[in-house]
Amino acid sequence: MKISVPKSLHFILFLFVALMVNTICAQEVKWLSWSEAAELATTEKNPKKIFVDVYTDWCGWCKKMDKDTFQNAEVAAYMESNFYMVKLDGEGKEPIEFKGKTFNFVPSGRKGYHEFAAALMGGKLSYPTTVFLDEEMNMLSPVPGYQKPGPFLNIAKYFGDDIYKEKDWKTYSGKGK
């Protein structure tokens, strides 16, 4: 006796398997607040560098980067082992202390911006922007715009593996002459 399985059941089974593979391959990132990362950076014997993801709730590219890049298993594992990872809402309302200064939310138009986010981005409010700081919380570089997992990992390793101390970005990335 031959049993006929409807094509719709095949499609549902395919979707289920695809969803399970995506769930297994995605890795949850442990995000910290700025104050948590700053405390770890100042109290740990071997502190890590700090990575800040500056985002807004309304930014579609920010959400895409969360899903595609930060949940990529290879990216998440590298970042977790080399950086304290901070999520910073560019329009957040809570004051932030940094190097003896208090940064606040500044109302502007219908929304506003956070002074700390603006400072990290060099006054250029662009979302998403990822920011790399060294172990002493000194600016290494802001990187504006959406980054796919491969290119992002290349940038992260440039800072995370201290390559920036020996090579400029153009030489490292192969974009120099």
Rank of each mutant, 00 (worst) to 15 (best):
K2L: 12
I3K: 04
S4G: 02
V5D: 11
K7W: 06
S8Q: 09
S8L: 04
S8D: 11
F11P: 11
F11R: 13
I12H: 01
L13F: 12
F14I: 15
F14K: 14
F16A: 13
V17H: 10
M20S: 08
N22A: 10
T23Q: 13
C25Q: 14
C25S: 09
A26K: 13
V29H: 06
K30P: 15
L32E: 12
S33I: 06
S33R: 08
A38P: 12
E39Q: 13
E39A: 10
L40W: 11
L40S: 13
E44T: 15
E44Y: 15
K45V: 14
K45M: 14
K45L: 15
N46A: 12
I50V: 14
F51Q: 10
V52Y: 05
V52A: 09
D53R: 02
T56Y: 03
G60K: 12
D66S: 08
K67L: 10
Q71T: 13
N72S: 05
A76Y: 15
A76I: 15
A76S: 15
M79E: 10
M79K: 09
M79A: 11
E80D: 15
N82R: 13
F83E: 08
M85S: 10
V86C: 01
V86N: 03
K87C: 00
K87A: 00
K87D: 00
L88R: 01
D89Q: 01
D89N: 07
D89H: 00
G90W: 00
E91S: 05
G92R: 00
K93S: 03
K93W: 01
P95N: 02
P95M: 02
I96Q: 04
E97T: 12
E97K: 14
K99T: 11
K101D: 07
T102N: 08
F103R: 08
F105M: 05
V106M: 07
V106G: 11
P107D: 10
S108I: 04
G109S: 10
G109N: 09
R110T: 03
K111Q: 00
K111F: 00
G112D: 03
G112M: 04
Y113V: 05
H114S: 05
A119L: 12
M121E: 02
G122S: 03
G123D: 11
L125C: 05
S126G: 06
Y127D: 02
V131D: 07
V131N: 06
M137D: 04
M139I: 09
S141V: 08
P142W: 04
V143W: 01
P144L: 00
G145N: 07
Y146V: 06
Y146M: 07
Y146H: 07
Q147R: 03
G150T: 01
F152I: 00
L153C: 02
L153M: 01
L153Q: 02
N154I: 00
N154R: 00
I155F: 04
A156D: 04
A156L: 05
Y158D: 06
F159M: 09
G160C: 12
G160T: 13
D161C: 09
I163R: 11
E166I: 11
E166L: 11
K167E: 07
D168R: 09
K170T: 08
T171R: 03
S173M: 09
K175D: 06
K177S: 12
